[in-house]
C-alpha cells in the first residue's frame, strides 16, 4: 500500500510540476466563480445551485484532460514497462493514479468552499443541498476520472485518449437528457444510467444510496476495464 501512495505522490507532483494542475484549477474556479457571482449579484439568488449545475459540464472536459496522459504517455515513453515490472500489482498502479486524480479533484472542490462560506455569512445556506451537491460533485468527478484513465490505457496517443474519454463521458452525460425521444420503459433505464440524473438527486439534498452506488459501481467498472486492458500488456 505504501507503494501505491508513493505512486500517487509522484503523479501529483507531475501535475503540479507542469502547468496542467494550475490551468485546470484556475479555469475551474473562474467558470464556477462567474456562475456563482452572476447568480448572487445579478439575479440576487444566494445559492450554490448555479455552481453545481455548471460543474458536470466543466468536468465533461476537464476530467478527460486531466487523465488523458495517465497511461497513454507511459505507453508512448515506454515507462509503462518499468512501472509494471516493479514489485507491485497492476491494480495498485491504477489505484495510485486514480487516487492522484481524486486528490486533485478534492482540491478543486475544496477551493469552491469559498462560495459556500460566502453564502453562509450572507444568508441562509441550504446545508443538505450543499453537502449533497459537494458529495455528488466528487463522485461524478471520480467516475469521469476513472473512465478517463481507462480511455488513456487504450492508446498511446494523448489526444486520442482525450477524445475517447470525452466521448464515453458525453454519452453518459447525455443519456438522461434525451429520454423524451425514446419510449417509456427505455427512457427510465436511460435516465437511471445517465450520470447527471444522479447528480441532480444528490444536489437536491437527498442522499440516496442508489445514487452513490451508481457512481461507485461505474468507477469500479472503469477500474476493472483498465485492469483488463493493462493485463493484455499493450505495446
Amino acid at each position: 500500500m505504501n507503494q501505491t501512495w508513493t505512486l500517487t505522490k509522484r503523479e501529483l507532483r507531475a501535475y503540479f510540476d507542469g502547468p496542467a494542475a494550475y490551468v485546470v484549477l484556475c479555469v475551474f474556479l473562474a467558470i464556477t466563480g462567474w456562475f456563482f457571482g452572476n447568480a448572487l449579484f445579478l439575479q440576487n439568488v444566494a445559492s450554490l445551485r448555479s455552481v453545481f449545475s455548471i460543474a458536470p459540464f466543466i468536468f465533461l472536459f476537464f476530467m478527460p484532460a486531466l487523465t488523458m496522459a495517465s497511461f497513454a504517455e507511459e505507453r508512448r515513453a515506454g515507462t509503462l514497462e518499468l512501472l509494471l515490472t516493479l514489485p507491485i500489482r497492476d491494480w495498485q498502479v491504477i489505484l495510485g493514479k486514480l487516487l492522484s486524480v481524486a486528490l486533485l479533484l478534492l482540491l478543486a472542490i475544496a477551493l469552491t468552499f469559498v462560495y459556500a462560506l460566502t453564502l453562509a455569512i450572507l444568508g441562509d445556506l441550504d446545508l443538505g443541498g450543499t453537502v449533497g451537491g459537494y458529495l455528488g460533485l466528487f463522485l461524478l468527478g471520480i467516475t469521469y476520472g476513472a473512465i478517463g484513465i481507462w480511455a488513456s490505457s487504450l492508446t498511446r496517443n494523448q489526444i486520442v485518449a482525450f477524445i475517447l474519454g470525452f466521448a464515453i463521458i458525453f454519452v453518459l452525460f447525455l443519456l438522461d437528457k434525451i429520454t423524451d425521444f425514446v419510449p417509456g420503459q427505455l427512457g427510465v433505464i436511460m435516465q437511471y444510467l445517465g450520470a447527471d440524473y444522479h447528480f441532480q438527486n444528490l444536489m437536491r439534498g437527498v442522499i440516496d444510496t442508489r445514487d452513490i452506488l451508481y457512481y461507485l459501481s461505474l468507477t469500479g467498472f472503469a477500474f476493472l476495464l483498465t485492469t483488463y486492458t493493462l493485463a493484455k500488456r499493450p505495446e
Binding site: 505504501n2 508513493t6 507532483r13 507531475a14 515513453a77 515490472t85 516493479l86 507491485i88
Partner: peptide, 29 residues
C-alpha cells in the same frame, strides 16, 4: 520482481523528474 533489476530497451525514464527524485521514487517503489 524484488530479485530483479531491469533496464528495458531505449531506457524509458520519467523525463519530467529530477534525477535524484527519480531514483528516490524507484527506490521507494
Amino acid at each position: 520482481r524484488q530479485q530483479i533489476g531491469y533496464l528495458p530497451e531505449n531506457t524509458p525514464l520519467y523525463s519530467d523528474m529530477v534525477t535524484y527524485d527519480y531514483l528516490e521514487f524507484v527506490a521507494a517503489m
